[in-house]
Design a protein around this nucleic acid. Structure first.
Lengths: 155, 155
DNA sequence: ACATCTAAGGACTTTATATATCTACGGAAT
DNA sequence: ATTCCGTAGATATATAAAGTCCTTAGATGT
């Protein structure tokens, strides 16, 4: 079990957008330079955040990305789900049961069902925990309410 | 988040050992042909189960693998932990915080701490669920108490 | 003590996935 | 019309999973 690195990138992008003074658009390049990650790769992550409606984008001169949600309502789970498509499909297809219970269709189905159900429950429990942590808990209220940083001009 | 394929192999190997008549040793080749997986690879998985003391091994003629534990006490979590080393290390090293809170050591540490803690809690919740499903729930008691199948001679 | 069968282990190859890059395209603002 | 910037697909690289092969070592029966 492993968490995608892009989850971290997604989280801190969201924080930067939340901190942006006046919540004005930030260009992808400003984000990527500051986070010291590849711009073209970060753009793909940004795109996923846009599709998930966590972020807005504007393609024009003076365009860029802005926050598309209430930072106090968005959780780590929301970012994970948006950024990591593999977030849900946990288990590889089970196909060994029919080798261990040959011909016994009932047992085959039952054992696979139990295993799948167990992992599905485990995943739910995992998600429930992540859903409880809002992104705003990583910041101070005063900082993100109207934004305090202009990333583009910050040295 | 993704589950290793070898977890499934580990689980069904355990079931085969539990079902083995008289709990006599089964050779790796018998296991691998029945499960239709590569023998040399299955041996590596078996080795991990041996190290975790879920399985015993004997290297000799008429040797092989036997159950090394009480199947009613062993859970899916035990198999996962034994077979998948990445079971624990969930998060890649966080290092973006110091780009978003430049110079603010307190915030850097705090935000990383919150994220790490969240994922750690999530992992625990995940494991708790898996620990509740014992391997014996995949079988009928009468089947594994003394074993009902001789895999080596089964057609 | 020896022959024999089997697990153990290391080095290696192959395959898949994550991560990152490049280039061309198209929309929006001025 | 021009310019900036996001979008998208093809491509390259890095890293991890999955599988193979060969050698070594351990237990058993004779």
């Amino acid at each position: 079990m492993k968490i995608n690195r892009s989850v971290e990138q997604g989280v801190y992008v969201m924080l930067m957008l939340a901190l942006q003074k006046g919540h004005t658009p930030i260009k992808s390049q400003v984000l990527s330079t500051r986070l010291e990650v590849s711009d073209s790769y970060l753009k793909k992550i940004l795109r996923k955040l846009v599709v998930a409606e966590l972020v807005n984008s504007s393609a024009s001169k003076d365009g860029g990305f802005t926050l598309g949600c209430d930072i106090t309502a968005v959780s780590l789970l929301d970012v994970c789900t948006a950024v990591d498509a593999t977030d849900q499909l946990i288990m590889p297809e089970l196909n060994l049961a029919n080798r261990v219970f040959p011909g016994d269709e009932v047992h085959i189905a039952q054992s696979q069902e139990i295993v799948n159900h167990a992992f599905s429950d485990a995943q739910s429990a995992f998600n429930t925990e992540l859903a409880q942590v809002k992104l705003s808990s990583l910041l101070e209220r005063s900082s993100f309410q109207h934004g305090v940083v202009d990333w583009a001009t910050l040295i």
